[in-house]
Amino acid sequence: MTTDLKPIDPQEAKEWYLENRRGELADATYKAHKYRLSPFVEWCDTEGDVSNMNDLSGRHFHQYKKWRRENGDCNKVTMATQLSTLKVFIDFCESIDAVRPGLSDYIDPPTMKNKEDVNDDYVDAETAQAIIDYQRNFNYSQREHVIFELLWHTGMRNGALRAVDLDDYDNEERTLEVHHRPDQDTPLKNGKEGQRVVSLKPKVNQIVRDYIDHHRFGKTDESGREPLLTTRQGRISKTSIRSNCYRATRPCEYGLGCPHDRNPDDCDAASSYHAASKCPSSHASHSLRKGAITHARRSEVPIEAVSERMDVSADVLKKHYDKRTKKQEMKNRRGYFDNI
Rank of each mutant, 00 (worst) to 15 (best):
G234Y: 03
D261G: 07
I8H: 01
P7S: 13
H320R: 08
Q142W: 09
K219W: 06
S240P: 01
S313N: 09
S240A: 15
A163P: 00
D121G: 14
D120C: 14
M310A: 13
K189Q: 08
N171F: 07
C245P: 02
D268E: 12
D97P: 04
S84W: 00
S104I: 12
K290C: 06
A248R: 01
D165S: 09
P280C: 08
D55I: 02
S299A: 12
C44W: 02
D45P: 02
M330K: 15
F217P: 11
K219R: 15
L150Q: 01
N171T: 09
W152F: 10
T175F: 07
P110N: 06
N52I: 06
E253I: 03
S281Y: 06
T78V: 08
E24L: 12
F89I: 04
H145I: 02
N139A: 12
K290R: 14
T2Q: 15
I207A: 00
S282P: 01
R36C: 07
A276F: 00
L103T: 03
P202V: 03
R21F: 03
Y30N: 05
A160I: 03
R225D: 14
L86S: 01
T186Q: 11
N158C: 13
L317H: 09
P39D: 06
V312H: 08
E253S: 12
R242I: 05
L200T: 01
Y321F: 10
W16G: 05
C245E: 02
P110R: 03
D210L: 05
R333M: 15
L288D: 00
L161H: 01
S313A: 09
S95K: 14
P302E: 07
I8T: 09
A275D: 09
S287W: 01
L166A: 07
D315V: 13
T2K: 15
S141E: 07
R216G: 07
D120W: 12
S282A: 08
D27T: 15
N137R: 15
Y35I: 10
V306K: 03
L161C: 03
P39L: 05
D97M: 08
P109Y: 04
E304A: 12
